[in-house]
């Protein structure tokens, strides 16, 4: 199958230092992470630890740091744009679902954008404005937009935040199917171990300031074959590695 033959890029992250003026200590320092092609890696950790910042660096949005982030050997800022999904749907409210997909990549034809919407289960909603769609549908449009920009590299920043569990399950199924079809490299930022247990091949737990990797789990059972009990075991394993105060808070 052509889709199965595709593979996502390799990511090499080597941050010397990343600071913000309002923080007394660097957010990231001497931080290294390598992500294999077509793997789904979850970045788990407490709020403010630097997960989203790391994602923005890989996406080439944040370039104010020392060190290097490369996508298949190309500096992230010069690499083709990644399929980025923000914490909110971030659709342009003045464009329809179809035009939101086409806005970020003019080469995408109306037919291709329509096909992407079909893949996320939104056939028939092409000409709806964002305010006419539910929150879950807006997230699916955002996912379709990300996939249409770059089906090889997906950067997901808490894509399920503020959705109820039913909608999360629905979104995970859509995402799961897209990942299986296109085999992209995925970096998934989440604070919920359950999301990592459902979708990831590998989970990296971040903690402290500067952030460091406190746990790096590689799961032997493929994500599609995990039973409910196995997913719960993985989630418990990850949760135990997250800072105790964060576990108590969540």
């Amino acid at each position: 199958m052509a889709a199965a033959a595709m593979s996502g890029p390799r990511l090499d992250i080597a941050i010397e230092g990343k600071r913000f003026d309002f923080l007394p200590e660097p957010l990231l320092e001497r931080f290294e992470l390598k992500v294999e092609p077509s793997s789904v890696v979850a970045l788990v950790g407490p709020s403010g630890v630097g997960k989203s910042t790391l994602l923005r660096m890989v996406g080439g949005i944040d370039t104010l740091f020392s060190g290097s982030v490369s996508v298949d050997g190309v500096p992230a800022a010069a690499a083709p744009p990644a399929g980025f999904v923000f914490q909110d749907a971030r659709l342009l409210p003045w464009l329809t679902a179809l035009d939101n997909i086409r806005a970020v990549r003019p080469e995408t034809t109306a037919a291709q954008a329509g096909e992407m919407l079909h893949r996320v289960g939104l056939s028939g909603f092409e000409h709806y404005f964002p305010h006419e769609l539910s929150g879950g549908m807006q997230r699916r449009v955002a996912l379709a937009r990300a996939f249409s920009v770059n089906p090889r590299l997906l950067l997901l920043d808490e894509p399920f935040v503020s959705l109820d569990r039913t909608l999360v399950r629905e979104m995970e199924e859509v995402l799961f199917a897209l990942i299986e079809q296109s085999r992209p490299t995925v970096l998934l930022v989440t604070h919920l171990p359950e999301d990592a247990a459902m979708l990831a091949d590998r989970a990296i737990v971040l903690a402290g300031r500067p952030a460091r990797i406190t746990a790096d789990y590689r799961f032997t059972v493929p994500r599609g074959e995990r039973s409910r009990a196995e997913r719960e075991a993985i989630a418990s394993q990850i949760a135990a590695s997250v800072a105790p105060e964060e576990t108590a808070a969540s």
């Binding site: 996406g59 080439g60 949005i61 744009p81 990644a82 980025f84 923000f86 909110d88 971030r90 342009l92 806005a103 970020v104 990549r105 003019p106 920009v149």
Partner: peptide, 16 residues
Amino acid sequence: PAYDDLGRAFRMPFLR
């Protein structure tokens, strides 16, 4: 400013 991030993330040219 969130839309500026969107433009940067997807490398939208200035005029676009």
